[in-house]
């Protein structure tokens, strides 16, 4: 797993609620058998005016100038600011793969869909939950101050303005935090309990043999 300790990044505001994973990465790109290369097609249907195709370059495609990702102001953004229930719908991990591949390292929203939220942690993408009022403030300031950046400190569990004027604290599970700070592999960690898993399985096999 990719480590996450501190991150200082340009904020891109995506002011829509219920952004689904079909929007984040449309289905035609799910035919890939790789984990990488989804970034160029992140939000494909919103970014371009035509339909994108897998394994094809985006060169020459008509760009939607109104979509926030295409605004020069936000080039190089690494912190995605979003509204409630971000990442709803399909369980496709291609969604966090695409966000990460594009360059995002953190998302800030008042809430996430459960499966998407879990998937982010597997990919060095930190899904931060802040209060709706705090997210409102961030949307306001992202619009008011071009080049608006945030400093995210996982150890401190804080999101801070570059000038120190505001600082918000966020919660996350201690186990998740430990894994992210140390870049630990979930599977390796779980396999430390291999003996327990084996014992559990044997008991289950004896009690409910029809499951095996």
């Amino acid at each position: 797993m990719e480590k996450f300790i501190v991150h200082n990044g340009l904020v891109l505001p995506l002011d829509r609620a219920n952004v689904d994973t079909d929007a984040i990465i449309p289905k035609q790109f799910l035919k890939s058998i790789k984990r990488s290369g989804f970034g160029p097609n992140l939000f494909d249907a919103w970014r371009y005016l035509d339909e994108g195709q897998p394994n094809k370059s985006n060169e020459g495609r008509p760009v939607n100038p109104d979509f926030v990702l295409n605004k020069p102001l936000y080039r190089g953004a690494t912190v995605l600011l979003a509204r409630e229930n971000f990442g709803c719908g399909s369980s496709r991990e291609h969604a966090p793969w695409a966000l990460h591949d594009y360059g995002f390292r953190a998302i800030i929203a008042p809430s996430y869909a459960d499966i998407f939220f879990n998937n982010c942690y597997q990919n060095g993408l930190l899904p931060i939950v802040l209060k709706a009022s705090e997210v409102d403030q961030l949307f306001h300031d992202a619009a008011a101050f071009p080049g608006f950046r945030l400093l995210i400190d996982l150890g401190e569990q804080s999101v801070a303005y570059a000038d120190g004027s505001r600082r918000y604290r966020f919660e996350l599970d201690a186990f998740r935090k430990y894994c992210l700070l140390n870049g630990l592999d979930d599977i390796g960690l779980s396999l430390r309990h291999a003996d327990k898993i084996k014992a559990f399985e044997e008991r289950r096999r004896a009690e409910q043999p029809w499951l095996f």
Partner: peptide, 14 residues
Amino acid sequence: IGTSEVEHVLATQT
């Protein structure tokens, strides 16, 4: 579950 979790379940049954 996501694909990383698919791998986790394949490898650990958990």
